[in-house]
């Protein structure tokens, strides 16, 4: 069970943004995309979310072509967290989190609603903010609330084996160190529950620590893919980022100058 992306390309006008990328996102695995600005990371995430349609290539969610999956069914299978927009009206934090709850028309799900909201708010340490107005929160707090919403979207009763995937575009942006660590641990926990996770990160060491696989993008191309140790080499990184990199092996750490 996986998402398979085959020879995906996307062009705007004559400019090629994504070029011939093939990649697999397995359930129960964290795959992180790294790369400099303009490498096509966020465009790739929008393509596999279905926001945009690629010019060439195909995307399969557990063998079904993404084009043939309805908008509603897509929302059951994958949740996406990206740079969020401003919210005009004065919603409470709880209301924002609840927006991730997708009605499936099954009463057993509905009965678990309150419990799921409480549980996930606690996991994301936003349980004290629930009654506050969302617009008064700090950037980091807003990020955690959106993360909770992303988790609620994929919530299932225990024992469910539905295919689920989560795409997170820089989830730890604006977070302090404590909450960054908490969020990454939570992402690992979700992986262990069988969710396939695609991350976009900028922090190379964070990626090295938490990813099962790393894909490096540059100018819309997939430069390298493999385990962190296979991919994160001094030559590749220096070449991709145009900055000299030095790697300490024990403990594994990437330094740049």
């Amino acid at each position: 069970m996986s998402i398979e992306i085959k020879n995906l390309s996307w062009e705007v006008g004559n400019k090629s943004i994504i070029e011939n990328i093939s990649l697999t996102i397995n359930r129960g695995e964290i795959i992180t995309i790294l790369g400099p600005n303009g490498a096509g990371k966020s465009s790739f995430l929008r393509l596999i979310s279905g926001d945009l349609k690629g010019s060439k290539g195909e995307i399969f969610f557990d063998k079904s072509n993404l084009d043939e999956i309805s908008i509603q069914d897509r929302s059951f299978m994958r949740s996406v967290m990206s740079q969020s927009q401003e919210i005009v009206y004065d919603f409470s934090v709880k209301e924002i989190i609840e927006m991730g709850w997708i009605e499936r028309g099954i009463s057993t799900y509905s009965e678990d609603f309150e419990e799921a909201v409480d549980r996930i708010s606690l996991d994301c340490s936003v349980n004290d903010l629930l009654e506050q107005s969302f617009n008064t929160l700090s950037g980091g707090e807003k990020r955690r609330v959106h993360f909770a919403r992303t988790l609620i979207q994929l919530w299932r009763p225990s024992g469910s084996d539905d295919p689920r995937y989560m795409f997170l575009d820089e989830p730890t942006a604006n977070l302090d160190i404590l909450h960054e660590q908490k969020m990454m641990k939570l992402i690992e926990k979700k992986r262990d529950e069988g969710i396939g996770i695609l991350l976009i990160l900028h922090d190379l060491n964070l990626a090295a620590k938490y990813s099962d696989k790393i894909a490096i993008f540059k100018n819309g191309h997939l430069v390298s893919i493999g385990t962190p140790k296979e991919v994160l080499t001094e030559e590749t990184l220096t070449d991709v980022y145009d900055v000299s990199m030095k790697i300490d092996e024990n403990p594994f750490r990437i330094n740049y100058y």
Partner: peptide, 20 residues
């Protein structure tokens, strides 16, 4: 009404939550 709530997150977000 529920769809209009989701739209407040932005059009791409609403779409990702299953709103046409």
């Amino acid at each position: 009404s529920r769809k209009l709530d989701l739209l407040q997150l932005g059009e791409p977000e609403a779409y990702r939550l299953g709103v046409d």
